[in-house]
Design a protein around this nucleic acid. Structure first.
Lengths: 244, 244
DNA sequence: TGTTGTCAATGGTAGGACCACTCGTCCTCT
DNA sequence: AGAGGACGAGTGGTCCTACCATTGACAACA
């Protein structure tokens, strides 16, 4: 195939509204806007950036969905918060190298979820968890990795924790976590031990012991992290981010 | 003023693209779409929903920014994940009554941040934290609550933790946390004790002791939660959500 | 058989028209 | 002079239409 030429890489054009959003984030910084301040009118932005109003609006719609701006009909668009303006989690997670950070965040959330689940779980929640483990067990017995049962189990815990905010946060990282899950369970001999770990977590939740459940979850994720990190550390070194 | 009539409440019209996004989430559920499946073309959706293509596109842009769909030029829009489809954290947090959930999520994240900060903080990070506490101390001395210094301190910890994913998650909740911060510091006698708690956290981070830092943060947030919850519990009872 | 050109399907952007909401201004009536 | 209301400019919300850009499939061709 010969050499790979950097100049001939895919060229992946970004969407215009993303560029606009990026420009707006620059504007926020450079003009030292503070929360509550108003943005220039859409028509002005459209003209100054030489793009259609449509594109400006799409950018604003995104920024609003992310909670960075608030658009009020008849009044204008206002800055809500400055920190991390324009950065979205999906974008952040798509850039690889994030593995260690994802695992740390996952631990923070899932340990708490397990703790809460132990305190609040209903009988139905336990049923869901047991069902998930049975699925995982059957998967493993038939030679599969057990990713489906694994995912179901953790999700059942999230449900049992009765906290939509935490559930939402873990869902936001779902794709990235799924990757690390597959990664981890692909390690020879890992699935059965993972199943055992899950059973210990379940035991803690079943016994309504937040401390035990949390501890078991922490230990479980610690193992996952160790397996995953061994694979990714060597490739690492610099961060890979494109800072300005 | 007489009685309040539910039928005459502000009428707050939602934006059309939000309705469209909501319809799409219904569609995802009812048609039992699975990740990877393709949505109908924009033009079709536009016609079937009797809205302009513009509105459909805005909805898709939002869903894409939230990581629920992936739109590929020339191919179509594809479902990425199903869980929590269409729900956004800002929307979730705007609906009040979320206080307890926010505090639980905050604890999960900040305890981990403190732990990581203790392991990774640089000398500069310590400077930032001390600076924040000095600001808070001066605020209190001049009769203010110390919210600015408080916020700065926690942010300095997030920076020192060197984890952009966790930082991003905490930033997403920044507004809601700020509310609880004000709430908490408004309690008579609270600011000075909060300052003391911060100093204990700083001591743990300074000593590079993740365990102590985490424990101090946990204790601090426990106090915050106790103060806040006493005020909100009475009003509580049902969840306040509008489930279908 | 493999290569290439073509075309239909689909998303991306532009521009203009018009509607809806907000707020300040100015006029009118008392 | 003050209160109330009419009006209009500014700004976001939606629609429509045309056209560009990318992709994938299929047919035509060598």
């Amino acid at each position: 195939m010969g050499g790979t030429f950097a100049a001939l890489r895919p060229l992946g054009r970004s969407r215009l509204y993303e560029d606009v959003a990026h420009r707006l984030s620059q504007f926020v910084r450079e003009s030292a806007m503070a929360p509550g301040d108003r943005f220039p009118p859409e028509r002005d932005l459209s003209q100054q950036l030489s793009v259609s109003r449509t594109s400006v609006r799409q950018a604003l719609v995104v920024l609003q969905a992310q909670g960075f701006v608030e658009v009020r009909h008849g009044e204008g668009a206002f800055l809500r918060r400055t920190r991390g303006f324009g950065e979205s989690l999906p974008k952040l997670l798509e850039r690889r190298r994030r593995l260690p950070e994802v695992l740390e965040a996952r631990e923070a959330l899932e340990v708490k979820l397990a703790e809460l689940a132990a305190a609040r779980r209903s009988a139905g929640d336990l049923l869901a968890m047991r069902g998930a483990l049975r699925v995982m067990e059957r998967e493993i017995r038939t030679g599969a990795l057990g990713v489906a049962g694994d995912a179901d189990f953790h999700h059942a815990i999230a449900v049992a924790a009765r906290n939509k905010v935490l559930s939402h946060l873990i869902d936001e990282m779902a794709l990235a976590i799924q990757e690390s899950r597959v990664e981890s369970l692909s390690e020879p001999g890992r699935p059965p031990r993972s199943l055992k770990a899950h059973e210990r977590i379940l035991a803690g939740i079943e016994a309504r012991s937040p401390a035990r459940a949390a501890q078991a979850m922490r230990a479980h994720l610690k193992e996952v992290a160790d397996v995953a990190l061994l694979r990714w550390q060597p490739t690492d070194g610099s961060d890979g981010d494109t800072e300005e």
